[in-house]
């Protein structure tokens, strides 16, 4: 763990990998909920980091972070959200070509893995889902689309993301879902908050079940 300074009142916890970052994020939320964390305005997870933004007692939390440890969350400890997907994205053939397999196999690989929300960004409710291994890397599109429809299920790097609303976007589209990712009437507004476990269910399979 490296503790990096961020401005006057914030701290970036730099960790070795996504698993460790997710464990520390969960641990810091747990400590906040149980009142054993100095007041922090925002706790923002990243791929390999956790940002403590607006810390009340910076020297105090530095000392505590060096003493604390973060147990890895149990595989089945958090909520599991199932997302039905119609795998008919405009870039499905491109991904199949990249991975050297049929489109059906892309669907099998993608829906066969369990994912976890590592962090959010890009737009409110846009979750970066980890869980896919190294061989299944996908580059961003050379030319981003000016408009990607809401509900598009897309890949970039080893991440899966779902566009919460229509927006420009450079990820490769493999499918779409009718699930509402962002709803201001809901608490929290985001369906996929950091730490959530996610599975994608091919829509034909769902209909048959």
């Amino acid at each position: 763990m490296r503790l990096l300074p961020v401005g006057q009142d914030s701290l970036l916890i730099d960790l070795d990998g996504p698993g460790e970052a997710q464990a520390w994020h969960a641990e810091l939320l747990r400590r906040r909920d149980t009142g054993t964390l100095t007041p922090v305005r925002e706790i923002v997870p990243g791929e390999k980091t956790v940002l403590l933004y607006g810390v009340h007692d910076l020297p105090g939390i530095r000392a505590e972070l060096l003493r604390w440890s973060a147990p890895a969350p149990a595989a089945d400890s958090d909520d599991l959200v199932k997302i039905p997907v119609r795998y008919d994205g405009a870039d499905l053939a491109v991904v199949a070509e990249l991975w050297g397999m049929s489109e059906d196999d892309v669907v099998r690989v993608h829906s066969g893995a369990e994912y976890r929300v590592a962090f959010s960004g890009f737009a409110p409710g846009f979750a970066y889902l980890t869980g896919q291994g190294e061989p299944y890397v996908v580059p961003r599109r050379a030319q981003p689309r000016t408009s990607v429809p809401a509900g598009s299920v897309a890949l970039a790097g080893t991440y899966t993301g779902i566009y919460p609303r229509s927006s420009p976007g450079g990820w490769q589209l493999i499918g779409r879902t009718s699930v509402t990712l962002w709803d201001l009437e809901r608490q929290p507004a985001a369906l996929l908050v950091p730490g959530t476990r996610v599975r994608f269910v091919p829509l034909s399979e769902e209909a048959a079940a």
Partner: peptide, 10 residues
Amino acid sequence: LPSEGMVLGA
């Protein structure tokens, strides 16, 4: 850089 949290003034 792996995506990480950003602050105002960054």
